[in-house]
Amino acid sequence: MTSQRLLNLYTWAFLAFMFAPLLLMIVASVNDTSPPSVTEWHGVTGKWYAFAWMPDEALRADAVLRTIDRDRFFGCFGNSLKVASGVVPLALLLGLAGAVMLTRWQSRANGLLWWVLLSPMLAPGIVLGLSALVFWGRIGVDAGLFTIIAAQLTFVAGYPMLILMARLQRQPVELEEAAMDLGASPLRIFLRITLPFLAPALVSAGVIAFLASMENYNTTMFAKGGACTFATEIGAMARNPNGHPPVINAVGTVIILLTFAAALGHTLLRRRERA
């Protein structure tokens, strides 16, 4: 039983390792000092959150917040949403096509196809961004939101593909054969049998693609040209020689709480479904 105890202890230590930095981030987000700190306590403040909605005069009055271009900050956030709204549907479409092809279309070229479709997921993220930039530059497309979408798509499409493929492999081929035998056309089989079966997987693939697109930094940095996304804008704040403003901690806290609520809600929902 001692080895079991040891394993439990280790698991708690691991979870502490995972969550401690996040907790510190939350604590620092209400500390009235910049750069964010938890060791020097200057009193509780909500201004790092209020940054999002406080009037311009109040903004200009604060020595730290004054240095951040709020309009640009939210402009970049909008860009991220634009990019994601392009990446997610395209990634689902490409992923679906790839998944159907690799699971239902057996051919000798299959091995090669695997490599072609999966290699972007295996390449360093920076290389994908750079390749998209060079490729579209050659064609005459200037770097910007479009090249970001193109670059992110190369690897984001892999997630839906893998998720949908796993699901497709669990669906017996006989279902599609039975539908065909009963006189259904390939399109009807896809719409009536395959797609409903894939629906839950499509939803989770969409969520994962959205998160991957929103948080991506490594690839986007190379493909963005003059444009910005939320991730690159937040990343750029690290270059501040005085340390980053606690606004980032506030944003991080919001993300953490949203993620927490979503994951908890999802888990509870699934438990109720099963009960």
Partner: peptide
Amino acid sequence: LGLIIPYAIAELMRIYAWTTI
């Protein structure tokens, strides 16, 4: 849940969380 939550939080945020440390 304890694994998924930190996994789903944006990469940059997980990195920034370390600066305080």
